[in-house]
Amino acid sequence: MNLDTDIIIVATQNKGKVKEFEHAFAALGKQVKSMFDYPELPEVVEDGVTFAENAMKKAKTVGDALGIPVLADDSGLCVDALDGKPGVYSARYAGEHATDEENNRKLLRTLEELKLGEDTDQPLLSPARFVCSLVLYNPATGESIETSGAAEGWITAEAAGGGGFGYDPLFYIPEYEKTMAELTLGQKQAISHRGAALRNLLDRLKSVE
């Protein structure tokens, strides 16, 4: 399988993810299209128990419908103090159609109820990681390539930054002394779970050319 095309189809309706993929593939001279460009496609129910299952389901459903290779992502936040939650439910942690702000509020409320540590002024509530699974699926051959990536950090009680999306304002990166939402898009791409998964995918593609 290869990406010998000027257009990359990404199976997502998340505007933040589209922006990140556009940034990543622009360096390769490729244009990204998403489900916003194909409104006639049915919505994919993400009922898998792992990120990889959801990514595969999205890639295969959209790829089979369009008849062309499709790249799909599923990703989320895994918090140590919550035994890996919200995990695959990250986007709907506060409800099926929850906003980023509602999900962030629930996360902070849940962690604060645990009364982690004795220092109530401690802004870092728990170690956590962003996890991403990527699947590139070719309906012509049934072939798929799956990769993953992760980014380690902490959940902070003090949200900061206007960039990114999702839980980025609460995800603190000690090396930068900033939250993910305070990083530039280039900085985020260099260290993020999605950036790591994408680099792994491109390496895999190069190895099979």
Rank of each mutant, 00 (worst) to 15 (best):
S90D: 06
G117D: 04
Y89I: 00
G142F: 11
D119F: 01
T99L: 13
A94E: 06
V135G: 04
A98S: 14
A151S: 15
L111H: 03
L108A: 02
N103I: 07
G87R: 03
T147I: 08
Y89C: 02
L134V: 01
E143D: 15
E143W: 14
A128N: 09
L82K: 06
G153W: 10
L114Q: 15
K115V: 09
F130S: 05
S148Y: 12
R109A: 14
T141K: 14
G117T: 13
G142E: 14
V131S: 05
T110N: 04
E101T: 07
N138S: 13
G95T: 13
L108E: 08
A94N: 13
A81E: 14
A91L: 04
K115Y: 06
G149C: 13
T110L: 01
E112L: 05
D83Y: 00
E102V: 06
V79Q: 08
A81G: 07
A81T: 05
E152C: 08
P123E: 10
I145C: 08
Y137A: 02
L124A: 05
G87D: 02
F130C: 01
D100H: 03
L108T: 02
E118M: 06
R92I: 09
V135T: 12
P86A: 06
G153F: 11
S90F: 02
G142H: 10
D83C: 06
E146F: 11
G84E: 01
S133E: 01
T120Y: 02
L107V: 02
P139H: 11
P123W: 11
V131L: 07
A98F: 05
D83P: 02
E143H: 13
E112V: 00
E143Y: 15
L82C: 06
P139R: 12
R92H: 04
L111P: 03
G149N: 12
G95E: 10
E113D: 07
P123V: 06
I145M: 12
D80K: 14
S148P: 09
Q122W: 00
G87Q: 03
E102H: 11
P123L: 01
G149M: 10
Y93H: 02
G142W: 10
K85N: 07
A98L: 14
R129T: 10
L107N: 04
R129C: 13
K115C: 11
S90T: 11
R129M: 10
C78Q: 14
